[in-house]
Lab assay of single mutants.
Amino acid sequence: MATVKFKYKGEEKEVDISKIKKVWRVGKMISFTYDEGGGKTGRGAVSEKDAPKELLQMLEKQ
């Protein structure tokens, strides 16, 4: 499965596409929420050019 690499609050993070719950576009950025486990929801964003094609496909399906 594909992963998304991004920075959040200065920390490098990587999340599996299957854990992503919601995806939306903000200008040229793709924002998303994902399941961190333990009932927590994380947030992240990547630029449109750095987003994996699976993430862009999720955006188109909504």
Rank of each mutant, 00 (worst) to 15 (best):
E36Q: 13
E11Q: 05
G27T: 10
V4D: 00
K9G: 08
G37I: 08
E12A: 11
E60K: 07
P52V: 07
T3A: 06
V46L: 05
D16A: 12
K22G: 14
D50H: 06
K49N: 08
T3G: 02
K19P: 01
L55N: 00
E12C: 11
S31K: 06
A45P: 01
K61R: 05
K61T: 11
L55V: 08
D16V: 09
R43M: 08
V26K: 15
K22W: 13
I17F: 04
Q57V: 06
R25Y: 10
K5H: 04
K5Q: 02
K5P: 01
K5V: 03
Y34D: 00
S47H: 05
K13L: 05
G44D: 01
K53I: 11
V23A: 11
V26S: 13
L59G: 05
G38Y: 08
K40E: 12
Q57A: 12
A51M: 06
F32I: 07
T33V: 05
R25M: 10
I20L: 08
M1D: 07
K49Q: 09
A2P: 11
D50V: 05
M58L: 13
R43P: 07
G44E: 01
T41F: 14
I30P: 00
E48A: 08
L56Q: 09
M1A: 08
K21L: 14
K19G: 04
T3H: 03
D16P: 08
I17G: 02
I20W: 01
I20H: 00
D35L: 06
M58H: 09
A2I: 13
V26H: 11
K40I: 15
G44M: 01
E48F: 05
V4H: 00
G44P: 01
F6G: 01
L59K: 03
K19C: 08
L56F: 07
G44R: 00
A2E: 06
K22A: 15
T41Y: 07
R43Q: 11
R25K: 14
V46N: 03
K49C: 15
K49D: 14
K28Q: 10
T41E: 09
F6H: 02
G10R: 01
M1K: 10
G44H: 01
E14Y: 03
K61A: 12
Q57G: 09
Q57L: 10
E36I: 04
G39P: 07
F32M: 03
S31N: 09
V15H: 01
T3I: 07
L55K: 00
I30L: 13
A51T: 11
G10Y: 01
K9V: 02
K49W: 04
L56S: 05
K7D: 11
V15N: 00
E14Q: 05
